Amino acid sequence: MIIGLDMMGGDFAPLEAVKGIQLYLSETDSPAILFLTGDEAQLNPLLQEYNIPADRVKVVHAPQVIDMHEHPTKALKEKQQSSIAIGFHLLATGKTEAFISAGNTGAMLVGAMYSIKAIEGVQRPTISTIIPKENGKTGLLLDVGLNADCKPEHLNQFAILGSLYAQHILGISNPRVALLNIGEEEGKGNILAQNTYPLLKENSQINFTGNIEGRDVLEDKADVMVCEGFTGNVILKMAESIYDITHRKEIRHEYFDRFNFELYGGTPVLGVAKPVIIGHGISHARAFCNMIKVAQKMIEADLMNKMKASFEA
């Protein structure tokens, strides 16, 4: 198994990425081989300093970096020797089986959409976030920002993609799928919600349990919660603020600690043909470690082929 990792993406790259690799190798019994894209003059001394075994990594020199503020499409086109562009080339040509970056989010999304492409039948790929439940369980919310405007057919597909991810990666058997709405009753909500409900209700590939409200998101009412990306991103950013506020005010509780994004690493782009994982720009070692673990789990579960088979059906 070979996983590609952009070493130059993120505010604390490449140091935190190297620390993340060290953490991953120390915690994993059968680690993947890692192809590291980035400036070898910066990477090689750090890999030696942190005693990264040479037989577990391969540095693929990438002299350019796509900065956070750059236009994604333009940057990918003009910086073909960047760590992100080379990472996608390795993935597209089969030299790696997954690609991870905490760099320019737009460039990662453009690369996923046009270098790897969507699974046949998927109208729009989506991104999700982990939702820590009050009772200790874990939920999945999608979309959380990739698709601000959606049609009912898109939400119906998000439900399938999220259900497969919850089942095979989060280990939730027969995950309960719910539509995020302003009321529990069928027929509630805006035009999008009203037209999405019957599609989800008739979808035999998911375990649809109806509508949930905003107050239910952190409760154990559903395993997969579906909405358009505008609403999902608002919830995601609010959830991130819960950890920041409780941390600043020194409010200590194991539940609030679970809102730390580093525990989950990054978000996979669901609906594209190969595993692509996008990390937060402020990722530290633990986040990089967990991103690699998620990528490995997706490969081991053969998740992309399961998604492909679902849409062929």
Rank of each mutant, 00 (worst) to 15 (best):
Arg248Leu: 12
Lys237Pro: 04
Tyr243Thr: 05
Phe230Tyr: 15
Ser173Glu: 14
Asp220Cys: 08
Thr246Met: 10
Thr209Leu: 08
Gly229Lys: 09
Glu185Gln: 13
Leu192Pro: 13
Glu240Lys: 09
Glu185Phe: 05
Ala239Trp: 00
Gln167Cys: 11
Lys221Val: 12
Leu199Gln: 07
Ala193His: 05
Leu170Tyr: 06
Asn174Trp: 00
Asp220Lys: 04
Leu236Met: 14
Thr196Arg: 02
Met238Glu: 10
Thr246Arg: 04
His247Val: 03
Ile235Phe: 12
Glu202Ala: 14
Gly162Phe: 06
Ile245Cys: 10
Ala178Glu: 05
Ile182Asn: 14
Leu164Gln: 11
Ile206Trp: 00
Glu219Met: 14
Arg248Thr: 15
Leu161Ala: 12
Glu184Asp: 14
Gln205Arg: 15
Leu179Pro: 03
Leu199Met: 08
Leu200Met: 03
Asp216Gln: 13
Pro175Trp: 03
Asp244His: 14
Cys227Gln: 07
Asn195Pro: 06
Gly162Thr: 05
Ala166Phe: 11
Ala193Met: 09
Glu228Met: 10
Ile182Tyr: 04
Asn195Ala: 13
Glu184Arg: 15
Pro175Lys: 08
Leu180Cys: 03
Asp216Ser: 13
Ala239Ile: 09
Gln205Trp: 02
Leu161Pro: 09
Leu164Lys: 13
Glu250Asn: 15
Lys188Gln: 09
Gln205Tyr: 10
Met238Lys: 08
Asn181Phe: 00
Gly162His: 06
Leu192Phe: 14
Leu218Trp: 06
Thr246Pro: 03
Glu250Gly: 06
Ala159Thr: 09
Ser204His: 09
Glu240Pro: 04
Leu200Thr: 01
Gly232Gln: 03
Tyr197Phe: 15
Leu199Ser: 02
Leu192Lys: 13
Lys221Gly: 04
Ser163Ile: 02
Lys201His: 05
Asp223Ile: 03
Gly162Leu: 03
Gln194Ala: 04
Thr196Asn: 04
Phe158His: 07
Gln167Asp: 11
Val224Thr: 00
Ala166Ile: 12
Phe230Ser: 10
Ala222Cys: 02
Thr231Ala: 14
Thr246Cys: 11
Arg215Asn: 07
His168Glu: 10
Met225Trp: 01
Gly210Cys: 09
Leu179Cys: 04
Arg176Pro: 01
Gln157Ile: 05
Ala193Ser: 13
Asn195Ile: 08
His168Pro: 02
Gly232Thr: 05
Arg248Asn: 15
Leu164Gly: 06
Ile182Ser: 01
Ala239Cys: 14
Lys237Leu: 10
Val226Pro: 06
Leu164Cys: 11
Leu170His: 10
Ala159Trp: 08
Leu192His: 13
Gln205Ala: 13
Ile160Val: 15
Phe158Met: 07
Ala178Ile: 05
Lys221Thr: 13
Gly187Asn: 06
Gln167Phe: 05
Ile206Tyr: 06
